[in-house]
Design a protein around this nucleic acid. Structure first.
Lengths: 346, 346
DNA sequence: TGTTAGCACTCAAGGTATATGAGTGCTAAT
DNA sequence: ATTAGCACTCATATACCTTGAGTGCTAACA
């Protein structure tokens, strides 16, 4: 790699930055105006010609500006790039996403959605069952390190949640016993302040455990059975629409994908569906301008009022209805089976 | 809904079927040729004119064929549609997908990938850690119904797996004890035929349990710690490419999405990446025609040789490298933290 | 010697006119 | 009631032209 003068570096950096921003070939005038180099476009042109000869820039055609070559990008990445600071809101969001708990059952449901889209080649929507009256089946503490335990909370919907904490070995078994004796069988609304206090007393009598750790554990158990993440909705195979000629216009495709990326929209979509069996909403029956050329086929899956959700296929109006109906029929009954297996009564 | 003659029904069905297949307006000649109605195109034309007047068909413009109206589709769905039989291979595949086990850790990893694509707005690739030498920490049997138990297998990488089986209440506790005493701490290659046999003997001495159920349980435990689903790979936000003008050409977009949908391709993609730290492959450095206008930025996450994987961002060559580098740096260290928390040593 | 203004030149992008052909509706014959 | 024949329509494709952004080069200038 040849040595570049400071001025050439500045110009190259400006070109790459600008091209990254706009995706349009960058002309000499734009650089001379934007940068505070105090150079005319003609001078920039000369420098750009040099940079092109050196292999850092490319001219798509004679009368266009320059774009970076692979070597230009490489030089930029190695030497020119400025440090980027991630925004605070983004980091906060990040923590939240990692904190959210997804259960095994949710996972299965989600995969069922993926199955439908694999079967039909259309975009699929699926909601996980809203969990109400979650009851604790069993709490388990498993030692997974010399000063680390894993807390497992199993509920009647077979949700298992995992957290880790530092507790010494001997306390582990005892703590599990106390927790199970006091909490097994309870619902969220049955865990009240009095119970928590009596638990804290019992535990502090028998086990030496920092208050903070105990609070963390109880908090985790409570959150597991209360209803924070109700009825999550998942979208699968959104880019299936690319395959259909009705979306050959890229702007239409973008609009549609944009629409589908907003979970609020999706929730409204599945809401409408019929009560039982498979039902289709065709074109204008959707009462939504953007969906006037789409059909949505919906089916409910359910075990009982404790666990039910919706499964939907969204595609062009000229979708293969027969195939979609058959697939939804099949998978929804498959989900019913899974629910029956996983969810325990009383 | 008006009554239609049998002939009109046949013609309407043929038109909808054909339009679903081709997405092109259907002409009278096509129907007269394809169907065995023994009618000329002129007759079909008359019938089509009738169907249009009744509201079942629409003519996009004078010199085009007909397409179904919303009412046409509705009539088709309600009365005309043929029953569709799902293929056997599809069903077999379906069973397999449901049977596959996804761990909580895999889930977290996957969400980390989603985070990166949210942060950068580029397509993200992430591999879950390949699990070797999985050891059993604890086996737990939780009663979740009057004749149903849940089998939980916790391993040193904090994977918990769930299966259900029918076992009566009293056997439950005893079985858990036996399993834990014999299996805790073992790796897959330490579970041999002799051990299994001795286990079967012990259990059949103390508990009355159908042989089939026991085999299912042991099989499940074994599969949990052996390495069937090693290093899964996930793709997130594939339709991000729609947002970039380099894919304004729908065919390019389709080609790219098609490429990304094949997991074999993805595996090759992340394989190449650098050894440590963040590294970028720009354009032709990818040595792949389809990626000549793309860049791939890769980072390894790892705790040690037991658990490591890759995280990659794929986007246009003019991607915001600074932002991508910063995001990958951040998330990969976040994953490292999670691994440290979840995975236990000896 | 490096920088700049001026100018002719190039070529992609976009707009307009023309040619093509699939499919129709209507009429007259069967 | 059905069909062959024919004039008519209109989206699509192609060719042609216009426009303008950006260049390279030359000559003047500091």
């Amino acid at each position: 790699m040849m040595d570049l003068s400071e001025r050439k570096k500045k110009i190259l950096q400006a070109i790459v930055d600008e091209y990254i921003r706009t995706a349009d070939p960058v002309g000499s005038r734009a650089i001379s105006k934007k940068e505070n180099l105090g150079l005319s476009s003609a001078t920039i042109r000369n420098e750009m010609a040099d940079l092109e000869e050196m292999g850092y820039l490319i001219q798509p055609h004679t009368s266009a500006g320059r774009i970076p070559s692979d070597e230009g990008y490489r030089f930029y990445v190695n030497s020119l790039m400025q440090y980027y600071q991630i925004g605070l809101e983004a980091i906060a969001q990040l923590q939240q996403v990692f904190a959210a708990r997804v259960t095994q059952l949710d996972n299965l449901i989600r995969r069922a959605g993926a199955m439908v889209s694999a079967l039909t080649d259309y975009t699929t929507l699926i909601t996980t069952p809203a969990r109400k009256h979650e009851t604790i089946r069993k709490i388990d503490l498993v030692k997974i390190g010399y000063d680390k335990i894993m807390l497992l909370v199993v509920t009647h919907t077979a949700q298992s949640h995992i957290m880790t904490a530092k507790i010494d070995d001997s306390s582990c078994v005892r703590l599990a016993e106390i927790l199970n004796k006091n909490l097994a069988g309870l619902k969220a609304d049955e865990i009240n302040f009095g119970l928590i206090q009596s638990l804290q007393e019992q535990i502090s009598e028998q086990i030496s455990l920092p208050a903070k750790v105990l609070i963390n554990i109880l908090n985790f158990v409570y959150e597991t059975i209360s209803e924070p993440n109700d009825a999550e909705i998942y979208l699968d195979n959104a880019n299936a629409i690319l395959k259909y000629p009705e979306y050959a216009d890229i702007d239409k495709a973008r609009e549609m994908v944009g629409f589908l990326e907003d979970k609020e929209n999706l929730k409204k979509l599945v809401e409408g569906g019929g009560e039982e069996g498979i039902s289709a909403r065709i074109g204008k029956e959707n009462n939504l301008e953007i969906l006037k050329d789409c059909s949505i086929v919906t089916v409910n899956y359910s075990l009982d009022d404790r666990a039910s959700g919706k499964l939907a296929v969204i595609g062009p109006k000229r979708m293969n209805y027969a195939k979609v109906f058959a697939s939804l029929d099949r998978i929804s009954s498959e989900i019913d089976k899974i629910l029956k297996e996983y969810i325990s009564y009383e």
